Simulated scan of single mutants.
Amino acid sequence: MTTLQDTRDLDTPELGDQALAAARALLGMPIRIEQWNNEATRDTIRHYSWGIGDDNPLYSDPDYAAGTRWGSIIAPPTFFFAVFDAVVAPGLEDIQWYYSGIDAEFFQPMKRNDEIKASAEYVEAKKLEGRRVRNMVLQTGEVLYHNQKGELCTRVRSHTFRVARSGASDGLRYEPREKHVYTEAELDAIMTAQLEEFRRGAATLWWDDVQEGEDLPGTVRGPINQMDMTTYYAGAVGTTGYKSTKLKWRYTAWARNDPDKLPNNYDKCYYGAKVLPSIGHQDAKVAQSDLGMPGPYDNGPQRCGMLATVVTNWIGDEGEMLRYSARIKLPVIFGDTHRFAGRVTGKRIEEGAALVDLELWGENQLGQVTITGSATVKLKQR
């Protein structure tokens, strides 16, 4: 079988036998980070929150937030995506990046006017086989987010699939899927579900009242379109790959001629790629013909953030999310609508803390599960 190194001059390189070794050879490399947001300001928090459809006043209204236990605006748990998207997946030039999921721990919220510093380590690479692709490499990075006091706010293990594009013999090939068409009645129901979304807010959810097996109210998002993606990008992912006009060309030139100037030192393969990996989120032709996706698709961290809102809506202002994991299962393309849901799987007292464990998932309008997850939350006890 040909190797990645053998086929770099071809339009579509294979993910060959040597790819895993090439990926593992970079483990432990020093990681430089270019952050999109350096401060958790009133506006950066709001921009991110609105990008996942979360208009919780705890994240955007100073007067409301002042009356909560926090005393001021805080960021939603997944705001770390707006600081740095946590993707640490170096090497493998022109092999496509797909977000796989996260395992996150939250130690304290990021609060208004906190300065956040991210640091990262590339910690794992392994070979996987999927139902649609027989050869993938899964790369994992660990990212820490500290505030200006040096306090750890969030620890994230972020996972990224590397998959050959559709022109390769082992490339990804989904059948194209047309944008879903809804009836007026269906669109009215989708709108109503979002306008009437449950949010506990200032009311207290007592640990004592939670029952194992009970369902969380859930949320609805969509139908997703290009405007949704643009709004999310403005709040969250102006780091890797999302550059415009002069900056786009500057980063491309650095990748080709002087990669040491790139703020993210592992981005040579990203900005130097023949097909910019992120363009599939916008361009139907690239998504289908080059990347093998069913159509232009959503952003994985965006979906992770949307799923987490099921939890934060349910626990209210006084609850805390301690741990959160999510795994992307299927692509979500423009026109898809999501129903995110959750269920209580257990409750316990651990070192004096009243904890609840949750199972989470999201389904598109076709009934397909596109994301799964879990969370552990801390509640007040009577």
Rank of each mutant, 00 (worst) to 15 (best):
residue 11 D to W: 11
residue 15 L to D: 01
residue 16 G to W: 01
residue 19 A to G: 07
residue 21 A to V: 11
residue 21 A to H: 13
residue 29 M to A: 12
residue 30 P to Q: 01
residue 32 R to A: 08
residue 38 N to L: 13
residue 40 A to S: 10
residue 45 I to H: 07
residue 50 W to E: 15
residue 53 G to C: 12
residue 53 G to A: 05
residue 57 P to K: 00
residue 57 P to A: 06
residue 57 P to D: 00
residue 62 P to W: 11
residue 63 D to G: 06
residue 63 D to P: 00
residue 72 S to G: 14
residue 74 I to P: 05
residue 74 I to Y: 03
residue 86 A to I: 09
residue 89 A to N: 07
residue 90 P to V: 02
residue 90 P to M: 08
residue 96 Q to L: 14
residue 97 W to Q: 12
residue 97 W to G: 03
residue 101 G to Q: 09
residue 106 F to Q: 00
residue 108 Q to Y: 03
residue 109 P to S: 06
residue 109 P to R: 07
residue 110 M to V: 09
residue 111 K to V: 06
residue 114 D to H: 08
residue 114 D to S: 01
residue 116 I to A: 00
residue 117 K to F: 08
residue 121 E to F: 11
residue 122 Y to E: 04
residue 128 L to A: 03
residue 130 G to M: 05
residue 130 G to K: 05
residue 135 N to E: 15
residue 137 V to K: 04
residue 138 L to R: 04
residue 140 T to C: 08
residue 140 T to D: 02
residue 141 G to C: 03
residue 145 Y to S: 01
residue 154 T to R: 09
residue 154 T to A: 05
residue 158 S to Y: 06
residue 158 S to A: 15
residue 165 R to F: 06
residue 165 R to A: 13
residue 165 R to G: 12
residue 166 S to E: 03
residue 173 R to W: 06
residue 173 R to Q: 14
residue 176 P to Y: 14
residue 180 H to L: 06
residue 182 Y to F: 15
residue 184 E to A: 09
residue 188 D to Y: 04
residue 192 T to P: 00
residue 192 T to Y: 10
residue 201 G to D: 05
residue 204 T to I: 15
residue 205 L to C: 07
residue 205 L to T: 05
residue 206 W to S: 07
residue 207 W to M: 04
residue 209 D to E: 10
residue 210 V to T: 03
residue 226 Q to M: 14
residue 228 D to T: 10
residue 229 M to C: 09
residue 229 M to A: 05
residue 232 Y to K: 00
residue 233 Y to W: 13
residue 234 A to R: 12
residue 236 A to L: 01
residue 242 Y to F: 11
residue 243 K to D: 04
residue 248 K to D: 12
residue 248 K to G: 02
residue 250 R to H: 02
residue 251 Y to F: 12
residue 252 T to V: 10
residue 257 N to M: 08
residue 260 D to M: 09
residue 266 Y to H: 15
residue 270 Y to F: 11
residue 271 Y to N: 11
residue 272 G to N: 07
residue 272 G to D: 03
residue 274 K to S: 07
residue 276 L to H: 09
residue 277 P to E: 02
residue 278 S to G: 10
residue 281 H to C: 04
residue 282 Q to K: 03
residue 283 D to K: 10
residue 293 M to T: 00
residue 298 D to P: 02
residue 299 N to S: 12
residue 301 P to Q: 11
residue 301 P to W: 09
residue 303 R to A: 08
residue 308 A to L: 14
residue 310 V to S: 07
residue 317 D to K: 04
residue 326 A to G: 08
residue 327 R to C: 01
residue 331 P to T: 00
residue 333 I to C: 10
residue 334 F to S: 12
residue 339 R to N: 13
residue 343 R to P: 00
residue 354 A to L: 06
residue 358 L to P: 03
residue 358 L to M: 01
residue 362 G to D: 08
residue 364 N to M: 10
residue 365 Q to C: 09
residue 365 Q to R: 08
residue 365 Q to A: 07
residue 366 L to A: 11
residue 371 I to Q: 12
residue 375 A to K: 03
residue 376 T to H: 05
residue 381 Q to K: 15
residue 382 R to P: 10
